[in-house]
Design a protein around this nucleic acid. Structure first.
Lengths: 388, 388
DNA sequence: GGATTAACTCAATTCAATTGAATTATCAAT
DNA sequence: ATTGATAATTCAATTGAATTGAGTTAATCC
């Protein structure tokens, strides 16, 4: 991926663009908010915010929500994001299918779809993605001309690495510039990412971490992934492959982390007990029945997850760790409740403002929705500068 | 520490500030460079860069370095950082002493000092730091009025955490706002950090990672620390305690990483062999003599370090991992040459543009110089924005 | 020596912010 | 009910910093 991000100077045009983003970000964060409050938060004058809001309203990205009386003074006109003001496409490419979702500016999914894939060649995949996009636009005509971009999730790692070709990545995609390919096919700005990173971003847009700038996300996919948000932005690494936590070795009977805690791990464990389980619903049923084999697996998995949390906490010192992904809700709940949190951690603070482990989004679409969130985050967050 | 960085809007003044930083950054990166090239790199007009350079030259931060003929066209006037244009103080507070260094704008140390500490109470420490600063200014009168700030390194973790009070942190400092205290005492902007983070930044200013925006730094202090640079900035975590890699559990005979690979670890190992070694020089001698006990330790330590590298690579996907800190140069070299690099890593690429493990600065002053580098980096790097 | 190329400068313009004064709408006290 | 305080908002003028466009200078290429 991109190794040297372009260092850019600033001018009037770029300032305005940044300020528009920042204003939208404040509105998103607050839900509804008045101009004066935005001005204070951004250290801009109310006049400037007024001008920007007029512009954004003209562009159909904001709507008035009445006035809010708060003590003395003229009550502030409240603004909120206009859902139809912008849309983001989220696409998740898996070996056997393409998932897609169209989110409006507020992060609500207005369409979702799944199409089976006959093969994973770039040609086939691009065809299907284009098809899915076209259908989404047909279903939601207001989105036409208001597309902010597309987030695409593919199984990582990207490029040729030591863990390529191990069955997780997509055959035929190791040496192509996927982002450009997609961007040309659907004529939209494209952000490419792995499932865990995308899911992490979703929590910031609609989920459990809306107020947070710095958190880690542990993602149940086929393996175990990690998404890191720092300063409101994804930590992608130099080549876009940050977060491969599943591959790191841990103490105990398992060689690597995701041997102990992942969907593949539980499937193998259940198979050994004579249960051939393939989808989330079946897993959920077993959990509801408190199946003994599943419960044994959960015990070891909780311990392993505790290790993962220890690593993440000590390396990033996040506000919280969010746990989510393609698992039944009940199992995520169980993990959040039963994972032993390490004492030996910088996050083990006496008066912690946030719980150390919280539950994020679950289910099959988590990464797909996250893909779209990558685009929304770009529209709603200005890269932060440092207060002096 | 700071949990929610202030999101700021942009205006003319802040744009100019940012552009000045960016111009200085380009000059620093290139060594000497002409205006047109800077303009291209920053996507600004040459006129703008011309104005900024005139301003910076007036302020005494840049000097002309003749013209450089490169093919056709009028040869570009080259500019370089003027060393006397700005200074940064680096201070490292240890339980028994305060180390200080004054760096000029180019990152060269113009004074260094060590003073013993009678105690670690804030009062005592602040007194000594003030004293050291005053003496530095006396020795380098040109620095007066040209101070950019002070970087202060203290043993972390900061604040009350699960690994506080384990002997590493400084008694009496857990619950004070150290940055403000220092800032008031010496009347300078202060950046506070732990040793590993500071040392990591030093590599970007003067060391092995000047061209890199995204790398990890493994630091030998008392324990083992980690500094993460992403997008040219430190990843500090929500509470400033990111990088406590020494505390994470690893497979093998040792409970945690720094039990196997750290200065404390080698000291213990040698003590068990009847050798009481306390400083770097003594360690260096043993290494030169190929002392058997030391060599056995190195073998296990290399393996453990390999684990650390595996974790860091898979979690961050950095351009490289830099190894440095308070160790003899020879031992660092040995580590770089003999640490087994994991195959199962996203960094194990066939045509890697950088070596996976490189050697950074070594010796007692590493963190002190790094402390000053935190300030220089602020002066020389504009927070990056994303190209659209 | 003339054409070409690229760096640089000057003067005018443009963009988007700030400033300062005026207006409006509410709360709180009399 | 009236009046003063407070805060949000608007209008018009100003300012700061970048861009634009035309011109100048100094090198290389042919």
């Amino acid at each position: 991926m991109i190794s040297t991000p372009l260092q850019q100077g600033s001018n009037a045009e770029r300032s305005r663009h940044r300020n528009r983003q920042a204003v939208l970000g404040q509105v998103h964060l607050a839900g509804t908010i008045g101009r004066a409050e935005i001005a204070r938060a951004l250290a801009l004058t109310t006049q400037t915010v007024s001008n920007i809001i007029a512009e954004l309203s003209d562009d159909g990205m904001l709507i008035e929500k009445g006035r809010l009386s708060a003590g003395r003074g003229q009550p502030a006109i409240q603004y909120a994001l206009k859902p139809e003001g912008g849309y983001a496409l989220g696409v998740e490419v898996r070996p056997d299918a393409v998932f897609a979702a169209l989110l409006d500016l507020t992060g609500r999914a207005v369409t979702t779809e799944r199409v089976a894939l006959a093969g994973t060649d770039p040609d086939i995949v691009l065809d299907h993605v284009t098809m899915v996009y076209t259908r989404a636009l047909d279903q939601v005509p207001t989105a036409r001309g208001r597309m902010l971009g597309a987030g695409i999730v593919m199984p990582g790692p990207f490029g040729l690495t030591g863990i390529a070709g191990m069955g997780t990545d997509l055959p035929g995609w190791q040496e192509v510039d996927a982002a450009t390919l997609f961007s040309k096919a659907i004529d939209l700005p494209v952000v490419l990412s792995n499932d865990a990173n995308a899911a992490a971003m979703a929590e910031r847009i609609t989920g459990a971490a809306q107020e947070m700038n710095s958190y880690a996300y542990l993602y149940f996919g086929t393996g175990l992934g990690l998404g890191l948000i720092h300063g409101g932005q994804l930590v992608r690494g130099a080549y876009g492959n940050a977060g491969e936590i599943g591959h790191i070795p841990i103490p105990g009977p398992h060689a690597k982390l995701e041997d102990a805690v992942s969907r593949l791990s539980v499937q193998r464990h259940l198979l050994a007990a004579g249960l051939d389980v393939h989808d989330i619903d079946a897993l959920d049923q077993l959990f509801e029945q408190k199946n003994a084999a599943l419960m044994t697996w959960l015990d070891t998995a909780c311990d392993a997850l505790g290790h993962a949390v220890a690593i993440v906490e000590n390396l990033f010192d996040p506000q919280t760790v969010v746990l989510g992904g393609a698992m039944p809700n009940g199992i995520l709940e169980h993990f959040v409740a039963n994972t032993p949190l390490p004492d030996l951690s910088v996050s083990n603070r006496p008066h912690a403002p946030h719980p150390r482990l919280i539950q994020g989004a679950s289910g099959r679409m988590t990464a797909t929705l996250g893909a779209a969130a990558l685009i929304l985050n770009r529209a709603l967050t200005a890269p932060l500068s440092h207060a002096h």
